[in-house]
Structure formats: C-alpha cells, structure tokens
Design a protein around this nucleic acid. Sequence first.
DNA 1: TCTGGGGTCCTAGGACCC
DNA 2: TCTGGGGTCCTAGGACCC
Length: 413
Amino acid sequence: MKTIFHVDMDAFFVSVEELFDPSLKGKAVVVGGQAHERGVVSAASYEARKYGVHSAMPLRTAYQRCPHAIFIDGHPARYREYSEKVFDVLRSFSPVVEMASIDEAYLDMTGTERLHGPPLRAAHLLHEKVKERTGLNCSIGIATSRMVAKVASDQAKPNGILWVIPGQEAAFLAPLDVRKIPGVGKVTEKRLHEYGIRRVGDLSRLDERFLEERFGKWGLALAGKARGLDAGGWFDAEIGVEEAPKSISHEHTFAEDTTDPDLIESTLAQLCVMVGRRLREHALYARTVQLKLRYKDFTTITRARTLDHATQLDTELLRESRMLFRRNWKPGAAVRLVGVQAGSLVPVEGQMNLLEEEQSDRWRKALGAVDRLRDKFGESAVSLGAAVKGVWREKTHENPASLPGKKKIRAKD
DNA sequence: TCTGGGGTCCTAGGACCC
DNA sequence: TCTGGGGTCCTAGGACCC
C-alpha cells in the first residue's frame, strides 16, 4: 500500500507576483498578458475568480468580466526559480519526488512514517515548510494512488490538506462530478452526460465492457479511475523517473493575422533556431519535422515529413519546414499561427555518408559556438543570416518584442 | 467569449512487407 | 479473378493537461 502526496501550489503565478509586489494582495490580478492582447489567462487571483475569470480564458473575455483587474505579462524566470525552491523543500521530505509541472508535484511518502509521522502530520509539516521557505501557499492531497491524491488536492483548495483514508477511495470519488477525473474534459464530459453519467459514482456502477465499447482503451482506464486506481496511461508511471522528451516544438501566434510569406518564413526560421537549440541541449536528433499552420478562422493543419536520417541542425529543420510551408500554403490565406515540431527523437544521428558526416560535423561545431554565445550574451547576440534577414522589421507593424525568441517578458526583466 | 504555448496520448487510414 | 491477415511505419487530427 502506497502513500502518495500531491502538492499543488495555490494560484502560483499570481502568488509569486504578490511576493514581488505586495500591493497586489487581495486584488483582482490576471497573469498572461494585457487586457486587449491575443492570448489567454495563465493564472487568476481568487479575487478575479469571483468575477468568473479563470485560466485558459481569452484575455479579452477576462477584461469584459473584470475590467478593474490588474493585467500582468508575467515573469517565467521567477516562476521557475520558485518552482525549484518548492522542489528543494519537497526533496527534504522524500527522495522520490516528481515535478509534474511548474506548480505541482507528486511525492512517494511510502515508508517515511518513522521520520515524519503519520500522513496528516507529515503533510502539515510539509505545508508549513513550503510556506516558511517560499512564502507561498499550497494544497496537499494524500491517497494510495496518484490520481486520487490529485483529485484530493483539488478538493482541498485553497491552502488545505485532504487525506483519503485507504479503502475509502471509491466513496470519496463517488459524489464528485465526472469532470473532476483527470483526463475527462469538455468532450468526454458531454458524451458521458448523454448516457446519463454525471457523477463518478454513476461511472463506477457501470460494466467495464460498456465503457470499453463506447470509449475504447480510454473507457477501460476510465472504469479503473472511477474506482480510484492509476489505471493505464500516464498515472501508471513510476514517480520520479525522468523520461526523454518525445517531441520538441515551438509556435508563434501573430499579433495580427498575416498573408506575408516573408514574415511567415522568417518566423519559421526563428522557430527552427529555437527547436534546434533545444535538440542540442537534450543531445537528441529528430527524424520527423512537422509544420503547423493555423488560419484566420482557426482551422489548423499539420504537415509532416520524415527524413532519411536524424538531425539537430537548424538549417535542415528550416529547409524541411519551409518546403512544407510552400507546398501547403495557398497564397493569400491569412495565417494566425505558425509552428515547428521535431518528432521521432533519437539519441543518435544514424547512418550518413562521408560527405554528409563531414558537413554535419562542421555545422555542429558552428552551432555549438552559437549556443555558447547566446548563453553568454543573450538570445539576440547571434542570428543566423539565413534565418532572419531583418525582414519583419521592414515589412510589418509586428512588434519585434512579441516575436519568438525575443519574449516581451525578457525585455522587462 | 474569439480562442497561448508546450507537451502527451489515442485513433484511424494507407503503404508496404511477409 | 474479386480477393487474407498481421505487423510496422507514416501521416493527420483531436482530446486533454498545466
């Protein structure tokens, strides 16, 4: 029998902002961008939530609902810093810790009773320590599975602790809305409602085969989750075992839709530089390159190509993604977003002929030098001539600060 | 309401091979 | 001469999470 803690920071981005500017406390605060911008809410203070503002909501909608809210772009570097501080505290409670995202973590507390006492006591100590070391509030869920621990921390919010006693998992979940199960979103919720399934208890009473027939593999996992099990998928994984990324991508939404191929291609180039750099950081090579285009009306297409070898090179990523763009974009179509994804990642380049090997080697050395310069002097220190050409400066009204790789956040830091 | 950016996993069809 | 079946790879799209 395991003892799992799920630690979830309360209104994390907003709370970090309050540490740096205490005058924000108690006010309606929205982190994610300015009220009139394209974009969505990353985090909303509890005061702002009273007006119906929540994360993932368009900023403009948030403004309509809560015009007096303070809108903040945000400080990702600070959030990472505080996330690491939290991690350090958690590590002092258990050697088995996994940050599931920037503001939440799982701890395997199995067998730590002698050190920290029973679960509730350990959780209180942990809660206090996080507050003491970071100044931030969190909520903690305790259960025998990851999934139930996560649901419990959500029920404990804000600033609370909830322990689901072993054996009580199904009883704890039964009265909750099916939407509370991680993985059940809008679409699945609607489909479940069509069958008259509204609460987790309704779900757990059903035959597994009923769910499998209608929801496939997912249905089977769902049946297990309704009973409180980490059935299948991500939740089944061991806590704290870090896995290599399966894809690396960057994308950019233009401040205004564009029909300018030069702007789109130079943006593509910058995205490829960013993707290439992260491939090199991870020492990974990509076998497929995927282009993503989102048009004015929000319809989105992806077009991929698999190479005969694996690559890490900005130039190759750009050649492929540009080719995909030219083949698939109909001139005149207004583009809202462009993205590049590297997939089928492998740790080695694979077979190449001698000439290719030599070229690849030269590029690797050059790009390694570029990466080091950027580390030292910042992202804008070096730009590949082929990549940018300053096209966007002359051709558009686009604010350079909003282009990828030149985050506005950086400019203000 | 007018919808970010970074990911994961699943499905489904077609190509291709044995 | 109206058509198999399984496995694997590739591509495209979509649900979902923070």
